[in-house]
Design a protein around this nucleic acid. Structure first.
Lengths: 186, 186
DNA sequence: AGCTAACGAGACGGAGCGTCCAGTTTGGAG
DNA sequence: CTCCAAACTGGACGCTCCGTCTCGTTAGCT
């Protein structure tokens, strides 16, 4: 994936088309390569030249977006763990609530379920860094088993988002952070 | 879904076919209605008569299985919350590790991502009861915000399983339960 | 100006979709 | 036992999307 021969403009067009399609296909039908090509005003061949599947397009689009805005996973470090976790959770949830980001992630998640290779890349390039950034922050605060605590922190957020059990609100977020803090025995 | 006209034998054959296909297609290609029909030795028409999609077949198969074995979500209640949660988590993880159950759930999860109706049914008929059973057990033990704590308990297990970040082992399970207990401020 | 990569247009065989039909089996009620 | 209705078979249908191929055109770089 991610052949660099693709003209930047073409790549951007394909990314945008995939995002828009994911946005208004939300929860309905799945993305198709032909649909992406048509929406991007681009030959099917051009899409296949650079990406093997719709999931790969989405993944690449996601990488391009995060590289644009920040580049790296940033976990706040003010010295106060509690307020840092609150800021982190609020930020994550804010991203998940952004319609475009949400559509992108849901469409990508759908593709991950039937593409083991893509799932592995997703873990290595996105999930892993995110988890280990949180884990590092926790570790610096002297939290034991910081990797597990990072999952305890992220897991329920992911669970709520993916399964849509209930919407996020600010009371829940702060209560969640309080539970995390208590769980580490402070 | 779940038209009762279907002959029991036919229904069983289709369920079995879907399970077997999910089992050895694991992570590779997606299930197809034609594949299920062929594997079940049944006309395509027969499958479409009773289920509108592969996800519906899987969901129905899952319901049939859980109705066979237990019927209801059972959360142990020995009076000792900690050991009950440990038993519960161990049981859940045991199910997730069973190859057939795992293949079924993963295939179903894949379909849920692009079928909003099915996802809603899944939440109402399976996730909801599971969460509220745990929540009730917690509530009886005097835990406040028991619904949120139930998600704190289930979320990381789901996260680990779905994203395959790391395998489950017994040390992690007991540490997880300990963190949950501490998080409720006991 | 000219070379080369990237691209556009469109065709291809194949798989799966979802629906239709006409004929056969099967189970139960009378 | 008979017979009727429901369930099932087998196959065909037009369609969308897949993934690959070819050929001719465009666009960037030197």
């Amino acid at each position: 994936m991610l052949l660099l021969m693709a003209r930047d403009q073409t790549r951007a067009k394909v990314h945008a088309a995939a995002l828009l399609l994911a946005l208004d296909a939300n929860g309905a039908g799945p993305l198709t390569m032909e649909g992406i090509a048509a929406r991007a005003g681009v030959s099917k061949q051009t899409v296949y030249r650079s990406w093997p599947s719709t999931g790969a397009v989405l993944f690449d689009a996601l990488l391009a977006r995060s590289a644009d805005e920040s580049g790296r996973v940033v976990v706040p470090n003010s010295g106060d763990l509690s307020s840092d976790l609150l800021a982190l959770a609020t930020g994550m949830i804010g991203e998940l609530k952004d319609p475009l980001e949400e559509a992108l992630l849901r469409a990508l998640t759908a593709d991950l379920q039937s593409d083991a290779v893509l799932a592995a890349q997703y873990r290595e390039l996105l999930l892993g860094p995110q988890l280990s950034a949180i884990s590092t922050r926790l570790s610096e605060a002297g939290v034991p088993a910081s990797g597990d605590v990072a999952e305890l922190f992220v897991g329920p957020i992911f669970y709520r988002w993916l399964l849509r059990t209930r919407p996020f609100d600010s009371e829940w977020v702060s209560a969640h952070v309080e539970r995390i803090i208590r769980s580490i025995g402070r």
